[in-house]
Amino acid sequence: MGFASKSPWVIHYDASSCNGCDIEVLAALCPGYDVERFGIINTGNPKHADIFLVTGSVNEQNKPVLQEIYNQMLEPKVVVACGCCACTGGVFHDCYNVIGGVDQAIPVDVYAPGCAVRPEAIIDAVVEGLGVLEQKAAALKENQKKGA
């Protein structure tokens, strides 16, 4: 197990969510579900974060913000789309100002469905994301060896 997956730090951005998924992301971090006891800490700084939790769908105005945060995060990094809107656009898929799911703007590694997404589903998705993070870290190491 790599260092990052033992205590992954998460960053959360609300693309155009209805808040339902946002408060569930926070609820997962707070007493009741309390993933902080596993060392999963919410940070506001993209450069500190390993896992990017995105809620809500993408539109023209928030697409660059999303990409900016993603680009600022350092490798290895994992993106988790939380909720139906982040996965596909959900109930708002045919709104005029909705492009679609988060994968329309940045690559997504794990999809957590639900409207609103349940904290259990978020925790599951983050645990799955840790596997991806591990793989990415290993691949990165391999590349560095080759480069050296």
């Binding site: 539109n59 023209e60 105005q61 045919d94 005029y96 100002n97």
Partner: peptide, 14 residues
């Protein structure tokens, strides 16, 4: 204010 992709979207019928 909203910076929507479509101009005056509420005047357009789907």
């Amino acid at each position: 204010f909203y910076a929507v992709a479509e101009r005056e979207p509420m005047t357009i019928l789907t």
